[in-house]
Simulated assay, not measured.
Amino acid sequence: MTAIQSNELCLSYGDTRIFESLNLSLPKGKITVFIGSNGCGKSTLLRSLARLLKPQKGQVVLDGSDIASLATKEIARRMAILPQGPAAPDGLTVLQLVKQGRYPYQNWLQQWSKEDETMVQRALELTHMTPLADRTVDSLSGGQRQRAWIAMTLAQGTPTILLDEPTTYLDLAHQIEVLDLLHQLNEQEQRTIVMVLHDINLACRYAHNIVAIKNGKVCAEGRPQDIVDESLIATVFDLDCRVIQDPLFGTPMVVPFGRGKQPVFQDFVPDAAVTAASAAATAAVREEQPV
Results as ranks from 00 to 15, higher is better:
L126Y: 03
L95Q: 12
A68S: 12
L95S: 15
V264L: 13
D267Q: 14
N38E: 10
G85E: 14
L24P: 08
G260P: 03
Q262W: 06
F249L: 14
G36D: 04
L185V: 09
G142A: 08
G157V: 09
A50I: 10
C10I: 11
L126T: 03
G29V: 02
V236F: 01
S65Q: 15
K99P: 00
A123I: 07
E20I: 02
R135P: 11
G101H: 02
Q5A: 14
S21A: 14
A277G: 11
T153D: 04
Q144C: 07
L202P: 03
A234N: 11
V120N: 05
S141G: 09
T2W: 01
T192N: 07
H183Q: 14
D238S: 14
S141V: 10
G142Q: 06
Q266R: 13
P247S: 13
E125L: 13
V178I: 08
P55F: 07
V33E: 00
S43A: 09
E187K: 13
Q156H: 12
Q106E: 08
L181D: 01
T158H: 03
E165Y: 02
H174S: 00
Q56G: 10
N107V: 07
A203M: 08
L232E: 06
A234M: 14
A155H: 02
V236H: 03
Q111M: 15
T192S: 09
E74C: 11
L154S: 00
Q156L: 12
V211K: 08
T93Y: 08
P252V: 06
L26R: 04
L202N: 02
K214Y: 05
Q121V: 10
L26F: 08
I150S: 02
V255E: 10
T130E: 15
L62P: 03
T130M: 15
N23L: 13
Q225W: 12
P89R: 10
L126C: 06
L162H: 12
P131N: 07
G222S: 11
A87I: 10
A220M: 04
K28V: 07
N201M: 10
V178C: 01
R102W: 04
I193Y: 00
I67W: 03
M1P: 10
F257K: 10
W149I: 01
V218P: 01
A3I: 03
